[in-house]
Structure formats: structure tokens, C-alpha cells
Nucleic acid binder design. Structure first.
Ligand SMILES: [Mn+2]
Ligand SMILES: [Mn+2]
Ligand SMILES: [Zn+2]
Ligand SMILES: [Zn+2]
Lengths: 138, 138
DNA sequence: AATAGTTTGCAATACCATTGCGCTATAGTT
DNA sequence: AACTATAGCGCAATGGTATTGCAAACTATT
């Protein structure tokens, strides 16, 4: 099982250190995107900065993508697709639940094409839907 | 002219104090959304917290809306439409220029309908397009 | 074993957002 | 006009997140 995690890292050209294995293992257990603080609490006691750098490395290598859901803290989630170092292909919608404050990837919901005024060049699109998630709706 | 600004405030049920007149006047002169720090620099010397509370009051009363463009600082822009206290109707796209780092409202670009999985309820949509704006494109 | 490169942990820094609180200006009342 | 209640202002303080510097610890290689 651990070998599987280790392979995931090496396949992405990430040195599988003890800390990084722990971080990836934790990420695999999540059902929603997590913040650095979530990770810190989940792997207590661990140094926040080390965790921060692990996430940054993962992002840089195309293993996780970061989400700015407007909560103030960047969230991180594993990439679904075959993202490459530097180039992410997770152009999907993200959902932020105003009730449980969890952020989820909606990988099946692609971001619609946005037509801009003349002279504007699109490089990236961030689409966050906020509301009530399926777990919180009654 | 000042009366016009004053009326804008009173019409929104905002007490037109000297500070608030200055803030609204500054906002009217902008061609893009501004941060609290931008406002502070533009109205130097003024107390940052007072400006912060002016923006919050404006937002609460439906005179400005805030934009989270992922830059780290919340941006503010005057509402185009007849927003009411508490209920904003600026469901338009926002554009962040990666070159000049300015954030613009695209009020003519409405946010497309997003269909979510069963059980998800939409309350709000935040759509930020990042790229190069018409002024920076060469 | 020595060396070079990588990772880690701690300290420090820089912003941004937000609240508490006393002072002041203003509006409303007598 | 004097008085009082309220609202606004300015300063201090706090809390949270992101990011970098640096030295110690660790790994891999010669
Ligand atoms: Mn995602
Ligand atoms: Mn806008
Ligand atoms: Zn929820
Ligand atoms: Zn630009």
C-alpha cells in the first residue's frame, strides 16, 4: 500500500521522503479539498512550513492543484487528470459549501467557454460556485 | 457636483460624512476595481481602518461590491445595477490582468448557468478570468 | 569517509482582515 | 442654547495566511 503512494510520488518526479509520503497519504484520504491548516491539524505534530513546502512541491510537479475558494486560505486537492509539471489541466468547477465550509472539486463540470471583449486574452479561469452541498442540504 | 455624490450616498441610506464623500469620489474616478491599500494610497493621509469601514458600509448598503480576484487583497468597485442592501445583483464576470494586475468588472458578461450534481444548491457564483487585458495586450 | 545536494525545522517577515475602545463630531431634544 | 444620544473616526491590538532565510539534519554519490 505504501509502495503505491511512493510510486505516485516518483512517477511525478518527487523525492518520496517520509514527510511527503505522510502528506500524500493524508490527501488521498480526503473527500474534499484541504487547507494548509487542515493538513497541519491532521498530521500534528508537524512543522507547518514543511507541509507548506510539500504542497508547493506537489503543485509544481502536477500532483495537486490549488483552489482559491474565497475563504481566505488556499485549498489543495489531488489532480484527477494527468497534469504535468507546470501545466495543470483541472479546468473544472469548484464548489464551496456555505454550511460546512468544505470545498469540493467537480471534475465532471467543465468551465464553460467565456467570450471576452476585444483585446482581452484568457489565460486562466477560476469558477467557484458557493451554496449548499449535497451533504448539508436537507 | 459634490451634491451629486452626496445624493448617491443618501439614496443608499448612507450618512454622507466627509470621509465617505472622499471615498465615493475616489471610487468614481477609478476605471478598475481597487483594493483597500489602493484607496489608502489614493487618499493619503487617511486612516486605513476608517476607509475599510467606509467600504464595508458601502458594500452592506449595495453601493459597491467586493471582488476576490485571488490577488490576496479584496477589490472593490461601484455597483452598476440597482443593488439593494444585502442583495447584490452584479452577477458578472471579473477579469484580472496578469500583466498590470488590475481587476475589471465585465458587467456585460453575465455568468453562465452552472448545472450542479443532484443535491447541490447554488447561492452565489464567483467567476474570475485571468489573462491579459486590452490595455496590456500588444 | 568526505562531499554535494536535498529536505527539514525554526525564526522572522510581510500582508490583509477585523475588532475594541475612547474621543469627537453630529443630530435630535428640551 | 444647553444637553444628550448616536454615529463616526483614529489608534492600538489581534489573528490568520503566505513566504523567505538560514542552519542543522539527512541522502546519495564518489
Ligand atoms: Mn479541483
Ligand atoms: Mn464587478
Ligand atoms: Zn456542506
Ligand atoms: Zn492589464
Amino acid at each position: 500500500m505504501t509502495e503505491n503512494i511512493e510510486e505516485m510520488l516518483t512517477r511525478k518526479d518527487i523525492n518520496p521522503t517520509a514527510m511527503r509520503l505522510l502528506v500524500l497519504d493524508f490527501l488521498l484520504k480526503q473527500s474534499s479539498a484541504i487547507s494548509l491548516t487542515d493538513l497541519e491539524k491532521g498530521l500534528d505534530p508537524s512543522d507547518r512550513i514543511t507541509l507548506y513546502r510539500a504542497l508547493k512541491k506537489f503543485e509544481e510537479k502536477g500532483l495537486v492543484h490549488s483552489i482559491d475558494d474565497g475563504s481566505g486560505a488556499t485549498k489543495y486537492a489531488l489532480c484527477e487528470n494527468d497534469c504535468e509539471a507546470g501545466h495543470h489541466h483541472d479546468l473544472h468547477v469548484h464548489f464551496f459549501c456555505n454550511t460546512c465550509r468544505e470545498t469540493s472539486c467537480l471534475p465532471k463540470h467543465h468551465i464553460p467557454q467565456i467570450t471576452l471583449p476585444d483585446g482581452f486574452k484568457t489565460e486562466e479561469v477560476n469558477l467557484i460556485v458557493k451554496g449548499v452541498c449535497n451533504k448539508c442540504v436537507q
